[in-house]
Design a protein around this nucleic acid. Sequence first.
DNA 1: CTGTTAGCGCATTCAC
DNA 2: GTGAATGCGCTAACAG
Lengths: 350, 350
Amino acid sequence: MRRARATPGARPTLEDVARLAGVSVATASRVLSPGTREPKPDLRDRVLAAAGRLSYTPNANARAIARGGTDIAGVIVADISDPYFSEIAAGAMRVADEHGVLTTLADTRRDPRREIAYLSALHGQRARAVILVGSRVRDPEVNAELDRELAAYRAGGGRIAVVSQPRLDADTIAIDNRSGARALATGLYGLGYRRFAVLAGPRDLLTGSERLSGFRSGLAAAGVELGRGSVVYGEFTRDGAYAAATELFAASLRPDCVFAVNDVMAVGVMAAARDCGLNPPDGIGIAGFDDITTLRDVVPALTTVRIPLYEIGAEAMRRVLDPSTTPGVRRVRCEVVIRASTPRRSPEAR
Amino acid sequence: MRRARATPGARPTLEDVARLAGVSVATASRVLSPGTREPKPDLRDRVLAAAGRLSYTPNANARAIARGGTDIAGVIVADISDPYFSEIAAGAMRVADEHGVLTTLADTRRDPRREIAYLSALHGQRARAVILVGSRVRDPEVNAELDRELAAYRAGGGRIAVVSQPRLDADTIAIDNRSGARALATGLYGLGYRRFAVLAGPRDLLTGSERLSGFRSGLAAAGVELGRGSVVYGEFTRDGAYAAATELFAASLRPDCVFAVNDVMAVGVMAAARDCGLNPPDGIGIAGFDDITTLRDVVPALTTVRIPLYEIGAEAMRRVLDPSTTPGVRRVRCEVVIRASTPRRSPEAR
DNA sequence: CTGTTAGCGCATTCAC
DNA sequence: GTGAATGCGCTAACAG
């Protein structure tokens, strides 16, 4: 005899529904699982009614194990409270929703170790696809371990996409940080700026490095060099930038333009400039990167490099959800947007 | 004879590990499941080695069904790309992570129907707990359906918390919008403002309504009324506010202070004011609500009402994850923060 | 301490 | 078209 289904706090099962409807579990399953050829209307209705009366909700785990797969996609980001990531996540979740797949979002708090741990957890969940978004790092050990985890996940049929740098053995959407930064440098030079400083973010993050090196090469093409002391590393955050910029402004070299490798940092620079008695954009131009929506109305309007964040997230999700896409590297171009934070600098002011 | 485990693309199972290690599945399970009393070191090592060689990753779904529960928490937000929600989500995910539970985040795109659908999906996933973040609505039908789904979920042992208004039959963290807005009104009045306008967000969202009514009551206490035409409803977004404010400034009534019911909207108002030839904060004060981190450096600095977003998310997650908390309503106070966007208004200017 | 076995809830072959 | 039986991968009694 089977265990009585009297236990309160226990969820109704398919068997309960079938019993109440007076049919077999097979029939109940057929009614409740979309896709199968549905039973006769009268049985159908009875099953539906029974399910309704019981507030039956199919156990997705059981379904997953019976079918050997889930309709879950994972998105792993470095910091969801950073608009850069939340916009990408929004785009990805939008597409996932349109495909009827649920998204599990994980926040690594910028710890590569946690990135690996989450990927493994998602693998355990048998997520259909995972998107890794966030700067790659230099640490070879971390990369190796991540690659191993990636391989295992893919071996099991998981689809994966990476948004950032093509450093991993996976389908990746590469943001063209380098050429964007280079174009920005060229533009700023054209506006008359000559003495640059760069807030480059953490040393080991590729995103910052790429933007820095692109910027540098753009400058070099114009015959300008970044003097020593004019590149400052620090946290990828507003506060990190504020601190670094304060230090920068206290030093003797007087830049006429500061490039922060992302918008959030640029805002920190602007605050620091003000607190140092400067009055941006007078005498000091400030530029960022990303073109974060939330920051589009700051004054003076921020010169930056626009990245189609939302669309990138959407595209990444589309790729992992579509079985026919062949993994590869898709480069996304960025677009320089000159705004009021870097006004033309008159020659005599130099 | 059992099916050969040669199929490529198939994930290794516990049985594979056990066979390779030369032990029973039970032993393998014990080694691989933390918490159980571990077998002898030598067996232990063999199992671990086998698991490593196979890149074995436990099937969380099977584990869930065998144990009758998961370590997944759900967070349902209205719009993850809105800093308000992403900060709350960040706080919640932080706590979840500390408890070793994965977070499934869902974005309703401000559609209450989707909120219900996601709750149901999370229920199906047998998530341990779910947090609903976002304004409640008026629509009684939607509320009833949501309450029903909530009841079913809870009946199955799920824990639930709501962040916003105590409108649902569930543990809730209520943000004291009303008193926060009232205090803001008082403060603005004290600064010399007299002719107010309010951008109230969508009509059916409680969050906006509460802030509006609180503001109104604060004004009333000072003997000021909101004239007709000075309350404009619209989208809860920057663009919605921009449009509404533009309209407002085009009308004949000349407010000396605009209160937007959230910061993102306030930024839109500021942009609209500028585009209408006004020069905030000269002649026109602007205030928001939330004190979004990303916007803390805008100029002029935004007068607003601070809500401990991150902490609220963390607290909500703590509550649902801790079995001993008794459901109830926890009110969170807000704090008025006067900044440069609402400078003292000299009497003669009135 | 280790192995055997019976479910967990559901999808799905296979007979009827 | 419908039902009975099997198995998905794992955990937890229960034996040994």
